[in-house]
Structures are given as structure tokens and as C-alpha cells.
């Protein structure tokens, strides 16, 4: 075994493990700091952005890593948000416990909808996911004792984090808390998608029949990944409930599902960084443009999407990554 394998050698060991930790901490930390500096008056927007980013990451796990087509993912997000809201109103104040409630209800929702949706493929799968979303939306409207119906569920007042840091009206605590949660989730997911399980999910996405022909039971894997995805979406929903103090019907709605998918495609499905950047770019763009031009911002968002599809059809993440790799290769040459 000689040098010809160096390109696939584990440049890993401790340095890689460290890198796996350090890069997300640094990059997301810096982005977070930049957001804090640029939008000091608008931390509520940034906090919301982080919740939705978690939803997009969650969606990436099933769409990008498993090849599942879904337009109903917000159902998981929203149900978790409602669960957290109710738990809080019932007296559970600790934000970390509330996150756990969100993650758990997301897990249940993920496993259930995964078990249904991944039984099918292609268009039937997509339609089924929409149907689940609509069903959850209709139920949320009906069960107004639990959801507040169209008025939304309000009165969610979480306690202090570690009993020390209270949520302030400027969302400062909420923002830092959400940022920390995002970083932790991102690191865990980086690890997960590189694991044997993650690799098998990508294999299933690439070629379902071949995956079975290497002896893999496909269905349980898809359900499991849906479960993980549910936890992440649930945490996003929990953050939304904790930070805004209200949960509205829009949290479970079709529009949120569709928007999350657009963000994912924009950033590049099948890459966590892609999902992250897609969510950030889309929401920033939407925020800035809708403030600057309240009448035509949707048109501009549309134009952005058309441009992306034309010039970076794989999404922003992969486009930037390949540009970066080319730069580095050029730099490495003497």
C-alpha cells in the first residue's frame, strides 16, 4: 500500500475530529456575530431565521440524503411547536426541557409520517406528503383548545436558561440560545451523514434497488432518517415557540413546507452547508427586499430563484464549493 491512496487516506484522526467540531463552530459563530452586528435591532428576525434554518436542515436529511420527495415537512415543525407551547403553558418552563419536548414530538411525528410517506415513491409520495400536511393543518385549525385555532397559541413564557439567562424583549438571549442550538445540531448532523448509516441513506437515494441488492433493508432506514429529521424539525419548532411566544397556523402550513424546499434547492440538497446557506440567503434576501420594496419583493425572490437555477443548478452550496476547490487546486500548483 503506497502513496497512491493518499487522496483517500483518512486525513482524519484527531485533527479531522477537531476540524469537524471547529469549522461549524467558527463559521456559524462568525455568521451569527455578523448577523448580530448588521441587524442589532432585528434579532427577532434572526432568531426566526435560525428556527427555519433548522427546518431546512431537517428537510435536507430526507430530501437531500434519502431522495424522498416531500412538501409536508412543516407539519412536523408545527406540531412540535404546538406541543412545546402547550407544555410551557401547562407549566414546563425550562427552555432545555422544552427543546426536549420539541425534539421528542418531532421524533414521533417524523417516525409516523416517515412510515407513511416512504412506503411510496415519486409523485404518489409527494402527494401523500402534501396530504399529511393538509391534514395536520386542518386538525390544527379544528383543535383550537390545543392550538388556539386561527388566533394562534399564545401566552408561551419560558423560564430562564439554566435558571440564569432570562428571555428579554430584544431577543438577545433567544438569539444566542438559538445560535448555540444550531451549532450543536449542525455538528451532530455532520457526524451523522458521514456515518455508515448516513452513507447507506445516500446509497438508497442513489439507487434503491442496488441498496437492497447489497442486502440492506431500505424501509427501516428511511423511517429512521425520518425520525432524526423529525427531531431536528421539532427542535426548530421548539425554538420558534420559545422565542416568539406564539404559534400560529402558518407553522404547520403548506407554504412553510414549500418555502423550506425552495431554500433547500437554492442552497443545494444533499449538503448540510448547502441547506444552511440556502436558508440564510433566502431569508436574508426576503427580509431585505421585502423591506425595501414591499410590492415587488416576491417578484425579486422569483428572479433570484431563476438566476440560481440557471447559473448554479446544483444550488449555491455545491457551486461555491467547486469554485473553492478549483481555487485551491490552482493555488496548490506552483
Amino acid at each position: 500500500m503506497t502513496g497512491q491512496h493518499t487522496s483517500v487516506e483518512p486525513r482524519l484522526g484527531p485533527p479531522a475530529a477537531v476540524r469537524q467540531l471547529a469549522v461549524p463552530v467558527i463559521v456559524i459563530g462568525l455568521l451569527g456575530a455578523a448577523g448580530y452586528l448588521v441587524f442589532p435591532e432585528d434579532l427577532a428576525f434572526l432568531t426566526r431565521l435560525i428556527s427555519i434554518t433548522l427546518l431546512v436542515l431537517s428537510l435536507d436529511l430526507v430530501v437531500g440524503y434519502c431522495g424522498v420527495a416531500t412538501l409536508g415537512h412543516a407539519a412536523i415543525f408545527g406540531v412540535a411547536a404546538y406541543a412545546v407551547g402547550n407544555a410551557c403553558i401547562a407549566g414546563l418552563a425550562d427552555p432545555l426541557l422544552l427543546l426536549a419536548v420539541g425534539g421528542l414530538s418531532g421524533l414521533v411525528m417524523g417516525l409516523v409520517s416517515g412510515a407513511i410517506v416512504t412506503r411510496f415513491h415519486g409523485l404518489p409520495q409527494l402527494v401523500l406528503s402534501i396530504a399529511i400536511g393538509q391534514l395536520v393543518g386542518a386538525l390544527s385549525n379544528k383543535l383550537s383548545s390545543l392550538t388556539g385555532g386561527s388566533d394562534g397559541l399564545s401566552g408561551i413564557t419560558p423560564g430562564r436558561i439554566f435558571g440564569v439567562f432570562g428571555f428579554d424583549m430584544f431577543s438577545r438571549t433567544g438569539y444566542l440560545f438559538s445560535l448555540a442550538v444550531l451549532i450543536v445540531v449542525f455538528i451532530v448532523l455532520t457526524r451523522l451523514v458521514a456515518s455508515p448509516f448516513g452513507l447507506l441513506c445516500r446509497g438508497i437515494r442513489d439507487n434503491n434497488l442496488r441498496a437492497r441488492m447489497i442486502g440492506a433493508a431500505v424501509y427501516p432506514r428511511l423511517i429512521a432518517m425520518y425520525g432524526v429529521s423529525g427531531v431536528v424539525a421539532g427542535i426548530g419548532g421548539a425554538l420558534m415557540a420559545i422565542n416568539t411566544g406564539v404559534v400560529g397556523l402558518d407553522s404547520v402550513g403548506f407554504e412553510r413546507s414549500a418555502e423550506a424546499l425552495v431554500m433547500l434547492v437554492l442552497g443545494g440538497a444533499g449538503s448540510l452547508w448547502g441547506a444552511l446557506f440556502g436558508a440564510i440567503v433566502f431569508q436574508l434576501f426576503e427580509h431585505v427586499v421585502s423591506a425595501a420594496n414591499p410590492y415587488h419583493w416576491l417578484t425579486l425572490v422569483g428572479l433570484l430563484l431563476v438566476a440560481i437555477v440557471l447559473f448554479a443548478p446544483q444550488g449555491l452550496g455545491p457551486a461555491v464549493a467547486s469554485r473553492w476547490r478549483r481555487l485551491r487546486r490552482a493555488g496548490a500548483r506552483p
Binding site: 483518512p10 482524519l12 456515518s195 448516513g198 442486502g215
Partner: peptide, 16 residues
């Protein structure tokens, strides 16, 4: 890894 029954591992490093 599939043959060796390792594909339920969520945090191991796959290829290496």
C-alpha cells in the same frame, strides 16, 4: 459495512 452489519451505526466514520 452492510455485510458486516454496521449500517445501523450513526456516529462511526464510514469509509475509514
Amino acid at each position: 459495512m452492510q455485510r458486516r452489519g454496521m449500517t445501523w451505526r450513526f456516529f462511526a466514520r464510514a469509509t475509514f
